[in-house]
Simulated assay, not measured.
Amino acid sequence: MVAKNRISGIICEFNPLHNGHAALLKHLRQDADDRTVCVMSGNFVQRGEAAVLDKWSRTRLALENGADLVLELPLPWAMAGAERFALGGVSLLAALGGVDRLAFGSECGETTPLLRIAEYLLSPQFSADIRPHLAAGLPFAAARGKAIEKALGADCAALNEQPNNILGIEYCKALTKRGSMITPYTIPRVAVGHDAQNVSGRFASASLLRRLSAEGEDISPFVPENTNARIGELRGEKRYPANIRYLERAVLAFLVTLSPERLRTVPDVSEGIENRILAAAGTAPSLEALYDAVKTKRYSHARIRRIVLSAFLGLTDDLPATLPYLRVLGMNERGAEILRTAKPTLPYVTRPADVKKLSADAQRIFALEARADDLYGFCTEHRRPAGLDYTEKLIRL
């Protein structure tokens, strides 16, 4: 029996929103009463990069393609590894209240094996099983795979090697840790994988589309018409695609002024990696060269990018550990109804005046977000004005 007035949550980046994303949004609208809430990263994303489209454009595109309400995942969680990223998104949906299921694409298209792996990863057995592999010098991801294979078999270990499955497992872990009543719901990822550099019909991965956009290629066959139109508008204004390379020298200059003690306060820094970063920053001609020089078996490119960008954006490990507010970026009438009937456990931020009512910790997070968005304004050939987090209006469709 299909639930009426069901609310589905999606944790997303929409970087950019492509045909696969549109297909998921359409799929979730199985009944006229179904509604969808998106928890979306802001202008900087999990890979330690600038989003190619600004968050206001992506919010409008999400609403035009089937979302009803778009909430912003605050910067410290949007810029984190998969575990913290997933926990932040799940926590926002739980704080909103009334969300029935968390929807995501995965390579396997089944929640049962993902939940099984998640439960194992949260168990004391996993902590014991992974220890000898780490002691042997394996990177954490490889050691985790070895532990899963021993405990659950080769099939589960294979699932854990696929990027969307991995994120799905983290969603399941977050739901389990919170004891949430939200149900995980997955559908097979349409046609192409997360980082695939090939196309299948009208479908292509977001990473491929970002690369093609950076090279000036036409991506219109693989994105909804409104995404293509917005890209065209911003490209004409020389504000698409956004890329951290416009801030490259500023980031490198910032790094050479840092002390090891200051860099050690950045989230995810450990094992002396700060010394490798600062040494590379002294001579690296580009950020890519720095990442290549610093990369180790234990530190992936993505993790190094996050550390470097987190340092530049002012993130520190003494920030509040829990989400401080529900920032509403946009909604339609159905989304407004969700807000009217919800019983949130966090305060809403729908306009700049709401920020003044927040706690000191919450205001600190919002100020960091606003500062980051001002820096994002320099990530395109023609910069955007500063202060948009305090002046841009809530998007209503």
Score class of each variant (00 low, 15 high):
Ile244Thr: 10
Ala242Cys: 10
Thr345Tyr: 08
Tyr120Leu: 13
Ala280Trp: 04
Val256Met: 13
Ala196Ser: 15
Cys12Phe: 03
Lys26Gly: 15
Gln125Thr: 13
Glu248Gly: 10
Ala136Pro: 01
Ser57Val: 15
Asp68Asn: 14
Phe14Met: 06
Leu61Met: 07
Val251Asp: 03
Cys108Ser: 12
Leu358Thr: 07
Tyr246Gln: 03
Glu149Gln: 14
Val251Met: 12
Asn164Trp: 11
Trp77Ala: 12
Val2Leu: 13
Ala143Ser: 06
Arg396Ser: 12
Cys38Tyr: 00
Lys357Ala: 15
Leu28Lys: 13
Glu72Lys: 07
Ile117Ser: 08
Ile277Tyr: 04
Ser207Val: 11
Gly193Tyr: 04
Glu170Ile: 05
Glu217Arg: 14
Leu114Ser: 07
Arg239Phe: 09
Val251Glu: 03
Gly193Lys: 07
Leu134Asn: 01
Leu278Asn: 05
Arg264Ala: 14
Ser180Asn: 13
Ala62Phe: 03
Leu25Thr: 06
Ala147Lys: 02
Ile117Phe: 11
Ala311Asn: 04
Ile304His: 02
Arg383Trp: 10
Arg230Met: 15
Thr112Asp: 11
Ser123His: 05
His133Thr: 01
Ala141Arg: 08
Ile365His: 05
Val355Asn: 02
Arg371Lys: 09
Ser310Ala: 15
Ile307Thr: 00
Phe14Arg: 02
Glu225Leu: 14
Pro385Thr: 00
Gln197Ala: 14
Ala214Tyr: 02
Asp292Ala: 15
Arg249Phe: 09
Cys108Ile: 15
Ser205Cys: 04
Ser286Phe: 03
Thr296Ser: 15
Leu397Lys: 08
Lys297Leu: 09
Ser200Leu: 06
Gly179Leu: 11
Ala136Ile: 00
Asp374Trp: 00
Phe254Lys: 02
Thr380Asp: 08
Tyr246Leu: 10
Phe222Gly: 00
Asp195Lys: 14
Phe312Cys: 08
Asp34Met: 04
Leu358Asn: 04
Lys295Cys: 04
Lys343Trp: 00
Glu170Val: 06
Thr283Leu: 12
Arg340Phe: 07
Leu394Arg: 07
Gln162Glu: 13
Val52Lys: 06
Ala321Pro: 00
Glu64Gln: 15
Ile365Gln: 07
Ala242Lys: 02
Gly105Ser: 11
Tyr171Arg: 03
